[in-house]
Amino acid sequence: MDSEAGRAAVSVRGFSAYYGGKEALRDVSLDVPENCVYALIGPSGCGKTTLLRSINRLNDFVPSFSREGEIYVGGTEVFSLSDRRGTERLRRGIGMVFQQPNPLPISVRGNMALPLAEHFRVPRAEMDARIVDRMKQGAIYDELKDKLRSSALALSGGQQQRLCIARALMLDPPLMLFDEPCSALDPIATYAIEDLLSSLKRDRTIVIVTHNMEQARRVADYTAFFYLGKLVEHGPTERIFSQPGSRLLSDYITGRV
């Protein structure tokens, strides 16, 4: 592990990924600095989601998945964790928010309590206090404080997604992964979540996959552009968008790819 990887929250080194014989990512290397929002962009099928789901090893559940290279999270190479408990502990420290809001068909409170209750014995008062606090962080408390007992499925899509974010915050993950969190939401709900991202990055690192360039431009400090499984360009968002270093990226930005 080199010194650069030590300072980065996530460090990807020579990473290639395959589904069966099909290559999804080729020789990707990048570093995600701490306490920033890092966006992965590119046209669909470019491998950005594969990379995201490799960071917390969620792709392990795809039987045909295989890979080469390394990914370091907080100094640990994630694929070196050979036993199930190690992987589970890794995932515990990485919050994940999915494309579709996915609250469980139980109460709002039940959803919030689940991750913490799974791993710790928490006195009820402490649990309630933490739920209130994390729902405030997730900018959902004011709307839902009277609905803690009602079904999470009764909420609007935007509320569900913020609930999922607040739920992921229950375990205080230093790293959070967002997989196109706004693609199923309307513009107002999208704006609320983008707002949330900038407040969340104060204490943690965020990696977000998005197909929406404007979103990347608005929320991300750094952006990496992928095309057909290759990392074409990466760097500070401002530079990426104002002075694209490659023809491919400038075509993508102007909507020609």
Binding site: F61, E88, R89, L90, G93, I94, M96, F98, N102, L171
Partner: peptide
């Protein structure tokens, strides 16, 4: 599967 993945992402067995 998205619901199962939620659980796995929280480090559940």
């Amino acid at each position: 599967d998205s619901l199962r993945e939620t659980g796995y992402a929280f480090g559940m067995g």
